[in-house]
Simulated scan of single mutants.
Amino acid sequence: MPNHMWLRIESFQNRRVKEAIALRKSDERRNTGRIIIDGVREIERACEAGVLIEEVFYSPTLAPEKARQLVEMLAGRNVTILEVPKRLFEKIAYGEREEGIVAIARSPTFSLKELTLKSGPEAPLVLVVEGIEKPGNLGAMIRTADGAGVAAVVAADIRCDMYNPAAIRASLGTIFCLPVVAASSAEVLEFLQQHALKCVAARVDGAVAYFEEDLTGPTAVVLGSEAEGLSPIWRQGWVKSVRIPMLGRADSLNVSVAAAVLLYEARRQRMVSGVSAQV
Rank of each mutant, 00 (worst) to 15 (best):
Val221Asn: 14
Ala183Thr: 01
Ala167Ser: 01
Ala170His: 05
Ala186Ser: 09
Lys198Glu: 12
Gln236Thr: 14
Glu213Lys: 05
Thr219Tyr: 07
Cys160Asp: 01
Phe191Asp: 08
Asp251Thr: 06
Asp251Met: 09
Ala152His: 03
Lys240Phe: 13
Phe211Gly: 08
Lys240Cys: 15
Trp234Ser: 09
Leu230Glu: 09
Leu230Met: 13
Trp238Asp: 01
Val208Arg: 04
Asp214Asn: 07
Pro232Ala: 01
Val242Asp: 15
Cys160Gly: 02
Ser241Thr: 12
Leu247Met: 12
Leu189Phe: 01
Asp161Tyr: 08
Phe176Cys: 12
Ile175Thr: 03
Leu230Asn: 10
Ala156Gln: 02
Ser184Lys: 10
Val242Phe: 14
Ala156Ile: 03
Asn164Ala: 15
Pro179Glu: 06
Gln193Cys: 11
Ala155Met: 14
Trp238Met: 08
Asp214Lys: 15
Gly206Ser: 07
Ala152Trp: 05
Ser225Pro: 03
Lys240Val: 15
Ala202His: 09
Pro232Ile: 01
Ile233Ala: 04
Arg169Lys: 11
Glu213His: 04
Gln194Thr: 00
Ser171Ala: 06
Ala186Arg: 07
Leu223Cys: 02
Arg169Val: 09
Met162His: 03
Glu212Asn: 13
Arg243Glu: 03
Val204Asn: 15
Glu226Pro: 10
Arg235Gly: 03
Pro165His: 05
Arg159Tyr: 13
Cys177Gln: 13
Val154Gln: 01
Ile244Leu: 08
Trp234Ala: 09
Leu189Trp: 02
Ala227Gly: 12
Asp205Asn: 05
Val181His: 00
Gly217Cys: 08
Ala201Gln: 10
Ala250Glu: 04
Ile158Cys: 07
Glu187Val: 06
Pro179Ser: 03
Pro218Ser: 11
Ser225Ile: 02
Ala183Tyr: 04
Arg159His: 13
Arg249Ala: 09
Pro245Phe: 09
Val239Gly: 12
Ala155Tyr: 08
Leu189Asp: 03
Cys177Val: 06
Phe211Glu: 15
Phe211Thr: 15
Met162Val: 12
Ala151Glu: 11
Gln194Ile: 05
Ser185Cys: 02
Pro218Thr: 10
Leu215Lys: 12
Val208Gln: 07
Leu192Asn: 03
Leu223Gln: 02
Pro245Thr: 04
Ile158Phe: 06
Ser252Met: 08
Asp214Glu: 14
Ser171Arg: 13
Leu178Asp: 00
Val188Gly: 00
Thr219Ser: 03
Leu192Tyr: 02
Leu197Val: 06
Ser231Ile: 14
Gln236Phe: 15
Ala182His: 02
Phe191Thr: 00
Ala220Met: 13
